[in-house]
Design a protein around this nucleic acid. Structure first.
Lengths: 125, 125
DNA sequence: GTCGACCTTCACATCGGTTCGCGGGTTCCA
DNA sequence: TGGAACCCGCGAACCGATGTGAAGGTCGAC
């Protein structure tokens, strides 16, 4: 597909798709006329990129970890340098921290909502 | 404590502490001479703020949900307007999405690391 | 009393992700 | 042949979080 369709299907502006490409997060082949051409699988990849960005990871990091997150995972780990592994471990730990933190706070919100609802129903009775 | 101590104990620049206050995330009382004075409990609060920021939440949202996240939780839910409840529910759901997303990706990284390690040990044998 | 360490406010800079919008080329259809 | 709808690259602005630094007030110690 071309950039317009990808843009619609991912709810992401064309400009931003080009930006992600510029940042090395997204690869597009080119038609004879210079138009970008995107593979079907890139819809998911864009969602992944946006999810990671939304979670607070910078493109710099996303660029590094993205290649390790694809389905045919067994294929290409010959490029696993020690620095790369360390980066991945660090980032994995940071993500775990984020998960724990978010979970705790979300649960606190849930509790609060429960308390409010309990209070409201008690008041109604 | 004054801002310097809070800054050190939270590894947060003074500038940022003032910024959080300006954004309504942090309250400081003032000494006679105009210096900010912080309660002990604010050390934890700063950590909480930074954790939420790190997880990708903007100060605007943090300001809204923070009051519902404190220990004496039962005390003050008289100010629970329907809009507030809706905001909290929305934000709780967004956080759940983030958690799921981060967990999936972190697990993918872990799997990759496992695969690399397995490959490395197989190669070594 | 003055020096140093702390605090105040404030304006400005930086950085990364995002949006806007230009000037121009390509495709297709009337 | 022209116009609509798409594409290109690109610069500029924006916004939110953060850094930097100036100009000045307060305090304790020497």
């Amino acid at each position: 597909m071309r950039i317009g369709e990808l843009s619609e299907r991912t709810s992401t502006s064309r400009r931003l798709l080009r930006y992600y490409e510029e940042q090395g997060l997204l690869v597009a082949s080119r038609c004879a006329n210079g138009y970008r051409y995107y593979d079907e699988s890139l819809v998911d990849r864009v969602a992944q990129i946006r999810g990671l960005l939304d979670a607070g990871l910078p493109t710099r990091i996303i660029r590094q970890i993205l290649p390790c997150l694809n389905k045919p995972r067994v294929i290409h780990f010959p490029d696993a340098t020690p620095e790369m592994i360390e980066l991945l471990e660090t980032e994995r730990d940071r993500m775990t921290e984020r998960v724990n933190f978010l979970t705790r706070n979300r649960d606190a919100i849930s509790e609060y909502l429960d308390a409010v609802r309990a209070g409201a129903s008690a008041e109604a009775s």
